[in-house]
Amino acid sequence: MASLSGLRRREAVAFYLTISPWLIGLILFTAGPMLISLYVSFTDWDLLTAPTWVGLDNYARLLDDPRLWQSLKVTALYTAAYVPLELAGGLSLALLARPRLRGIGIFRTLYYLPSVLSGVAFVVVWLWLLNPRGGLINLMLAQVGIPGPRWLLDPQWALASLILMSVWGWGRTMVIYLAGLQNIPAELHEAAAIDGADAWARLRTITLPLLTPTIFFNLILSLISTFQTFTSAFVATDGGPLDSTLFFVLYIYRQAFQFLNMGYASALAWLLFAIILALTLIIFRSQDFWVYYAGERAE
């Protein structure tokens, strides 16, 4: 800092002053807690008595905990189905609601509407829609002579039901795609159309390649959020039936706040962190192979 002139130096001081709330918060509510969590993960602690140091025991326990593997399986299956569905579904909605037709704003507004009610109310509405006896979906199926499954109450169907529910939240991805679509020059489409390219060819050769940065962004968002799925599992099924919807975060929650295994829960949380970090890094690395940034790279 010594080399900075007085004015630059004052500006630097001002910068650190203005960002100090965030820096302090980062230490108090993120970095500090993470260090504590790391320490706690090497202990056995029920919060009531003093923590006892157990070394790597909690991490060793990860290896042969069948419920942990079940929760990883559930989370991975859900992610594998949800992420591609949301990416494709959101894009379809965006393409559908893309042309600036009269009244298009109303459709966009309605598509996004369920996304604002995320949380418990969202889940509760679906609990009722999927109710085996009086739920709308089974009543409609009955009208056409199909006996509906028991949805969230059936171990075979529970996870699939949660995936079905997520369709209702596609509006969020749609909005981001709509923004990305605005960046694609119309002249490209027009020139291709004059050369005889039909809508499908234009989608494949113009829209999709130019939209890859947006797809990338949605992919990251979607992945991080599915790995943190909690509310729907907690409210709709409480992990059941037969652990068929035991999501990873729900399992951490139980270990920490129901069984008071703070040490083991911390080890689980670090495992979650490692998984998300690894996936994010892999996807960031993969950008070179499939994400196209026109002109300069994003900042």
Binding site: M1, A14, T30, P33, I224, F227, F230, A269, L272, F273
Partner: peptide
């Protein structure tokens, strides 16, 4: 505002966007 270390801190800011809440919920 311009300051040494700003670019680095901005990357830290963006990476906290990807930090899952469940990681800090137990210590918090």
């Amino acid at each position: 505002l311009r300051a040494p270390g700003k670019g680095y801190l901005f990357v830290v800011l963006l990476s906290t966007l990807m930090l899952p809440y469940p990681v800090t919920m137990v210590p918090l």
